[in-house]
Simulated scan of single mutants.
Amino acid sequence: MSVLTPNAFAQSDFNRIDGDEIKNSSISQDILAKIEFSKQQFLKAKEVEKTRNAHQKFIDEQRIIAEKSLEEEIQRMNQSYKAFTPKNAFASYVSKLNATDHGIFWDQFDYLQAKITLAKDARDSVLKQGGTFSEAMKQYVKYAKMPKVEMQNIVRDLNVKHNLADAKIQSYFDINGKLPRYDNDLESPCYGCNEKISKLQISSEQSVPIKRVVLEQKPTKINDLRESLSELQSDFLKSRDVIAQKKMVFEMNNIIKNIQELK
């Protein structure tokens, strides 16, 4: 082996050292030691890289196996608990009811499920964007909540839609779902009566004249808001456009807030 050492006093001169001179030259020994050290470091790095690659390959293989196992387990669970999914469980319940009532029950289910689907989508969107769980749940509640005003309104409209209630009679109920109160029952209106009642038969021989109140629906801001809410709820139930549904929920929440402030 030979080593070239630079001449400290010349810019381009090198001294060639061969044989035994290498053993006696501290500079040469230092260079050789550094070469050997670099060689060992290189071999060590290659070995570490080889080990790391083998380990990563093992991890990737195990991940594939785990994902496949998880997918198989999920499919097995879905099959085992298929009857207990929200829709199937509800279908089992509805099947036990009178067939004429199925329509209104399914409309109520679809309305609620649509809200829950939007809520989950909003929650997951926040989490994917790095939001906190608290922020995500605020969005979930925003779309999934159903205040009493909203619930009463959709149930009323669905009852009318499926011919389980009369629209005119339903219009007599206030925003709290109550009929007007009268101190004297004999003066209260006869809801749903087509004939004008002028007296009350007490017995076969006695009757009492009465004065029935003529109940006229007066337009109010709350009634206008309820009509707007009904239109939005009907459109929401028919729509399959997620973006449009989210916009409708926002508008419904504003209307409900206004109604609550006027109550």
Rank of each mutant, 00 (worst) to 15 (best):
V214M: 09
P219Y: 04
R123Q: 08
V155M: 14
W106H: 13
M77N: 11
Q56A: 07
K23D: 10
I197W: 03
W106L: 09
T5K: 05
I17N: 02
K50L: 07
S92Q: 11
K211F: 07
A45Q: 14
D124V: 06
Y93G: 06
E72I: 04
N253V: 01
N258V: 11
R181L: 11
S134C: 08
R76W: 02
K199Y: 04
S80K: 14
F9K: 15
L164F: 06
K263V: 08
A144E: 01
K120C: 10
I197N: 08
Q56L: 09
D224S: 15
T117H: 01
A54Y: 04
S12E: 08
E61A: 15
S230Y: 01
E227S: 13
G103Q: 05
Q217S: 13
E195K: 15
Y191H: 10
V160C: 08
D101P: 03
T220P: 09
F236L: 06
K142S: 13
V155P: 05
Q62F: 01
S28Y: 00
T117L: 00
D235A: 15
E67W: 00
A165D: 13
A99K: 14
P180I: 03
A114P: 00
S228F: 02
F105I: 06
N223L: 07
V126T: 12
T117K: 05
F236S: 11
D13N: 14
G19M: 04
E216Y: 00
Q79T: 11
N78V: 09
H162D: 10
V48R: 15
E21R: 08
V155Y: 02
E195D: 13
H162P: 04
C190D: 12
N24G: 10
A122S: 08
C190G: 13
G192V: 03
A119Y: 00
N258W: 00
Q62D: 10
K96Y: 05
Q108R: 05
F109S: 11
Q129I: 04
V149N: 05
S203R: 06
Q11H: 06
L127G: 09
I202N: 07
T5E: 10
G177Q: 06
N163A: 14
Q56P: 00
D20C: 07
E187M: 08
P209G: 04
N15L: 11
A91C: 04
N78D: 14
